[in-house]
Nucleic acid binder design. Structure first.
Lengths: 194, 194
DNA sequence: CTTGAAACTGTACGTTCGTTCAGTTATATA
DNA sequence: TATATAACTGAACGAACGTACAGTTTCAAG
C-alpha cells in the first residue's frame, strides 16, 4: 500500500502562502512549503488537489488556487445541523462571499438603503443591497425602480391594470406608475454589517 | 508634455484577463493585452497601477492584482447620493465582499439562521450570519451562545445580576443562564440571498 | 519648425518556470 | 523477511520569466 499523504495539512499551507503572497506558489515553492527536497515530489499531491478542485491549471501551465483555498470564510460541515463548538477546528473548505452572492459581476452594484419602506421584509435603513441590472423582474422580486422620476425600492408586481409596486411597510401603500417606470435592477441579496 | 495613458482601459483589460485566467498576467502577457509590441512598454503603466494600488509586487517580482481589480462588485461613486442610472458605466473600482465583511478570516464562520427569535432585528429564518469567534461581546452585540446546554442567537447584555440574553421578538423573553454560558461567537454581519 | 522628454521598440541576459526521466527510498501487504 | 508499489530524489531540458539597456518614435511646448 502506498503511503498516505495529508492533503488537509497542505491545503492549510497553501492558504497561508496565498494570504502572504496573494498568488499560487510555483512547484519549487510548493516543495519548500510542503517540506520536500525535490519539486518533483509535489506532482502527486498537486494531482489530488487538482482532482478535488483546490487548484486549477491556467493556460500557461501555471497553477491557480480556487475559492476552496482562497475564500476567507470557513465552511463547517456541521453548521446547518447544529452550532459548531468553538473548539472544533481544522480542515474544511473555505467559501468566497462574492461567488456565493454575485452571479453576474459585470451587472451587479451596491446600494445603501435609505428609508424604511421595505422594513417588514427585513431590509433596514443603512443595509446594503446587491442589485443586478438587466434582468426581467418577476412578481414579488424586490426591485430598484424609477417611478415618475423618483427612485424607490419595492416589491414588483403586475396585473391586468399593469405594473404596480408594493412596499413592505404598512404605513405606505401600493404605487402604480402614472407616467413612467424604469427598472434599475433586481435586488439579489441584502447585507448588514455590525 | 508626455503622452497620456489610459489607465481605466487597462484596468478593464486586467479585469477581463483575471476573470479568464484567475491570475495576474506576466509582463509579456500584459504587452499583448494592452496592445504593445514590446513588453518593456508596460513598465510605465505598471508603475502607475502599483502606485494607485491596483497591483502589488510579490516577493519574487511577480505581479499580483488587488481587490480593486479582482473584486466582483462595481463600486459606483454616486451610489450613496442617488441611484445610478443603468446607462452609467465605465471605470470605478471593484470591491470584494469578503474583505468588506470579514476582519479575521481564520476566526469567521457561517451559520444559517433557524428560528425567529431575532426577527425584530431583521434577522429572518434562512438568513446567513457571519460569526467571529474569540472576541469579547459588548452590550447589544448579537451573539451565538450556548445557555445551559442549548445554542441560541440573542442580544448580549450584562448587569449587576450577571449576563443576560435578549431576543428580538416580543413572543420570547429575556434569558439568564442558570448553570452554564458559552459564547460561540459574535455576529458581525447578516446576509440574505434571494 | 525645432527640440526635449517621455513613450515605445528590440535585443540580450541570468533566473525560474513546468516538465521529463532515471534512479533511490520507504512501507504496507504477503 | 521478501516484494511490489508508490513516494521521493536529483539532474536536465527548453520555454517563459523579470530586468536592463541602447536606440527609435511620438508628441507637445517653445
Amino acid at each position: 500500500m502506498p503511503r498516505k499523504i495529508n492533503l488537509t495539512e497542505k491545503i492549510g499551507q497553501l492558504r497561508a502562502f496565498y494570504e502572504q503572497e496573494g498568488r499560487a506558489p510555483s512547484y519549487a515553492e510548493m516543495a519548500e512549503l510542503f517540506g520536500y527536497r525535490s519539486k518533483n515530489a509535489v506532482y502527486g499531491p498537486v494531482q489530488k488537489l487538482l482532482e478535488y478542485g483546490y487548484m486549477e491549471k491556467s493556460r500557461n501551465g501555471r497553477l491557480v488556487l480556487t475559492t476552496k483555498v482562497t475564500g476567507s470564510i470557513k465552511l463547517l460541515g456541521t453548521v446547518q445541523a447544529g452550532f459548531p463548538s468553538p473548539a472544533e477546528e481544522e480542515l474544511a473548505d473555505t467559501i468566497n462571499l462574492d461567488e456565493f452572492l454575485v452571479a453576474r459581476p459585470e451587472a451587479t452594484y451596491l446600494l445603501t438603503v435609505s428609508g424604511d419602506s421595505m422594513i417588514d421584509a427585513g431590509i433596514h435603513p443603512g443595509d446594503i443591497v446587491l442589485v443586478e441590472k438587466g434582468g426581467v423582474p418577476k412578481k414579488n422580486d424586490i426591485v430598484i425602480a424609477q417611478v415618475d422620476g423618483e427612485w424607490t425600492m419595492k416589491y414588483f408586481g403586475k396585473d391586468r391594470t399593469g405594473v404596480y409596486l408594493d412596499p413592505a411597510n404598512a404605513n405606505y401603500s401600493r404605487i402604480r406608475p402614472e407616467r413612467s417606470l424604469a427598472i434599475g435592477g433586481i435586488v439579489k441579496a441584502v447585507v448588514r454589517k455590525y
